[in-house]
C-alpha cells in the first residue's frame, strides 16, 4: 500500500510517500515556512508524487496530521486529505502530533513510558502518555504546565516535546515536533472508514453575550 502523508499542523508544510510493504519512504518534501501552508501544500504534494514518479492520484491512503497544533493549519491538512480521498477513492486516516512525538521519543530508548507534549501557550500543554512500546496509556488532553510533573510521576515517564520545555520540565531528548515520516509510518495503523476530524483539545474561544437585550415584561 502507498500512503501519502500530509502535515500542515506545525511550522512545516510537509508531504511524503510511504510504501508499506518495504516500509520505505519513496519521496519526501518538507518546507519549514511557519505560515502560508494553504498556498504551498498542493505544490508540496505534487513535488512528492512526482519525485516518486506517481500520478496525482497515485496513492491508496492519505494519512494526515490531525493535531493538536495550529487550528487553521490542522484544518488545511484535514480538508485537503478528505477532499483528496473523495476525488481519488483513497482511504483517509488521521494521525495525531502527540502519537508521532511519542513514536519519535522511542529512539532515545529510555525503556520507560513517554510523555509526549506540545506547548499550547496560555500556561498549558497538550500531552499524552505512551508506554515503552508506543501504546497510548491515556487519551490526549490539555494540562496546565504545573500538572505535567504529576503526570510524569504517575506513569514513571520521561517527557519529550515543546510543552515540557515551555513548562520547564526536564526532557529525555530533543523532539521538537512530529516528523512527516512518523505520520506516514503511524498512518498504517488506524482503520479507515471513520471521518477524519481535527484533534483540537481546546474549545472555541466564544461565549454567549449577556446583558445585550433590553428587559421585557
Amino acid at each position: 500500500m502507498l500512503i501519502l502523508a500530509l502535515d500542515t499542523a506545525q511550522a512545516d508544510c510537509a508531504a511524503c510517500l510511504f510504501e508499506t510493504e518495504s516500509a520505505t519512504v519513496l519521496s519526501r518534501t518538507v518546507e519549514t515556512i511557519g505560515k502560508g501552508h494553504a498556498e504551498r501544500l498542493m505544490a508540496v504534494i505534487d513535488e512528492t508524487l512526482q519525485k516518486a514518479g506517481k500520478a496525482p492520484s497515485g496513492f491508496d491512503r492519505v494519512a494526515v496530521n490531525i493535531g493538536p497544533g495550529s487550528f487553521t493549519g490542522v484544518r488545511i491538512g484535514v480538508s485537503t486529505a478528505r477532499a483528496l480521498a473523495v476525488a481519488t477513492g483513497a482511504e483517509c486516516v488521521g494521525v495525531s502530533t502527540l502519537s508521532a512525538i511519542g513514536r519519535q521519543a522511542l529512539r532515545f530508548a529510555t525503556g520507560r513510558a513517554v510523555l509526549a507534549t506540545i506547548d499550547a501557550r496560555r500556561g498549558e500543554a497538550y500531552a499524552q502518555v505512551f508506554d515503552a512500546q508506543g501504546r497510548a496509556l491515556n487519551p490526549p488532553a490539555t494540562y496546565a504546565y504545573g500538572a505535567l510533573e504529576e503526570l510524569l510521576r504517575e506513569h514513571d515517564a520521561v517527557a519529550f516535546g515543546t510543552g515540557a520545555v515551555a513548562a520547564g520540565v526536564e526532557t529525555g531528548g530533543d523532539v521538537t515536533g512530529a516528523e512527516i515520516d512518523s505520520i506516514a509510518r503511524l498512518g498504517r495503523e488506524p482503520m479507515p472508514g471513520q471521518p477524519v476530524s481535527p484533534l483540537y483539545l481546546r474549545a472555541p474561544d466564544a461565549k454567549p453575550q449577556t446583558g445585550f437585550a433590553v428587559a421585557r415584561r
Binding site: 501544500l41 496525482p56 484544518r75 485537503t80 477532499a83 483528496l84 481519488t88
Partner: peptide
C-alpha cells in the same frame, strides 16, 4: 483547500 485538492487529483 477542498477545491484545490479535487482539482489537483
Amino acid at each position: 483547500m477542498s477545491g484545490k485538492a479535487i482539482a489537483y487529483a
